[in-house]
Design a protein around this nucleic acid. Structure first.
Lengths: 209, 209
DNA sequence: TCGTTTACCTAACAGTCGTTAGTTAGGCGC
DNA sequence: GCGCCTAACTAACGACTGTTAGGTAAACGA
């Protein structure tokens, strides 16, 4: 999603940001300021070009924001899938779930302006743009449901958990972190361990010690 | 926060919505559509008046949205405090925490457009408006920290929980519900029980059966 | 009955928005 | 050297924004 200029770096005009560069900048601004406060003129200025020039790369503002949203899910989806497929086949369920949580949180907080922009602005964009992002979202949700269902079947999770509800709760909790996370107070990885501890074992002091 | 017309119902002009009525409508629109897409003209139209007339009741759009944000926290704060002070003094810690979770979720999902509007638009409003809402927020957060600290001290909670982090996680999780909650799929109270079960006991199948 | 207050109205302001049309200049293949 | 492609530019469009100034009509206290 980054990797501008596959070969020789164009440098045609002064700026040389190109389509990918504009998209990177749009994602960063959307993450920082939300959807409504980011105008095409702001994006253009940050990219060192003029507002009208954006229409050489994109057909509309909606097209930009839709591209940002899709890329955001694809990044976190790939991050989560890679994390769990990289584990040995006989890894226990708890470890797999911890890895998935860590991968999601990493993409959200450390790696990708696209993923954080998606979480931040999804609720602010026009309905049509939201709808266009839904298939990509559903694929990611299905990946989680598949993982959680398997963990339920193999006895890692309690048998009375509602997979869909648990997935909504999990992803909602992780995404909410974006509102208050401060890297100076602790890394995303440390936070993911806390999250996993709470979800897996709860916060209640247990009698059976 | 509702209760328009303490005594005789003005009915002066045609609409008779008044300041409180405009605020109610603004809160509803903000909850439904977010901050950026709700103009003063939309609020005015929904209230049956003209845009300029809003300036009789409020000095600016920021003043409206600030009033909505403050009321939103006050409603959920009162809901949560009332719920726990209504319990008998010797109520066990787990029950108190469950009551607090239920009260927050009720205010958010069932009772108040103000609370849901706050959660929805807080991240979208200008910095100055956010700052103005902070003292009210901090008071509510302090109430939670006080509750969680006491539960930790009396041994209800594990001794290694970080109160601040747990509070951020808890409220973040509850608020995230707003993005997907559908009353047709289950009540807010039923959902709050699921939340409490997960947070208190975790989702892991336990060996000690 | 008169003056004041309350709650609205109309009309316009300057600014910003997404978007479009037409133009320009550098680099590459032929 | 000529023509094309790429990536920008300028200038303007209509729509919409928050906001203001000044006017109006109904209700109320004296």
């Amino acid at each position: 999603m980054k990797q501008t200029t596959t070969n020789k770096a164009p440098e045609t005009a002064r700026s040389a940001v190109g389509r990918d560069g504009v998209l990177d900048i749009a994602a960063r601004l959307f993450r920082e300021q939300g959807y409504g406060s980011v105008s095409l003129r702001k994006i253009a200025e940050a990219a060192g070009i003029k507002a009208g020039s954006i229409y050489y790369h994109f057909g509309s503002k909606d097209e930009i924001v839709a591209a940002v949203l899709d890329a955001g899910i694809q990044v976190v989806h790939a991050s989560m899938r890679d994390a769990i497929t990289a584990l040995p086949a006989d890894t226990d369920g708890e470890t797999v779930l911890r890895a998935a949580i860590r991968a999601h949180l990493r993409a959200l907080l450390d790696v990708s302006d696209y993923t954080s922009a998606n979480v931040r602005i999804f609720g602010q964009v026009p309905q049509s743009v939201r709808d266009a992002n839904l298939p990509t979202r559903r694929a990611y949700e299905a990946e989680w449901d598949s993982l959680l269902s398997q963990l339920k079947k193999d006895g890692t999770l309690k048998q009375d958990v509602d997979v869909r509800r648990l997935r909504l709760m999990l992803i909602g909790t992780l995404n909410a972190t974006l509102d208050w996370f401060d890297p100076d107070r602790g890394s995303a990885d440390a936070l993911s361990r806390t999250y996993a501890d709470v979800f897996l074992n709860g916060i209640l002091q247990r009698q059976d010690t």
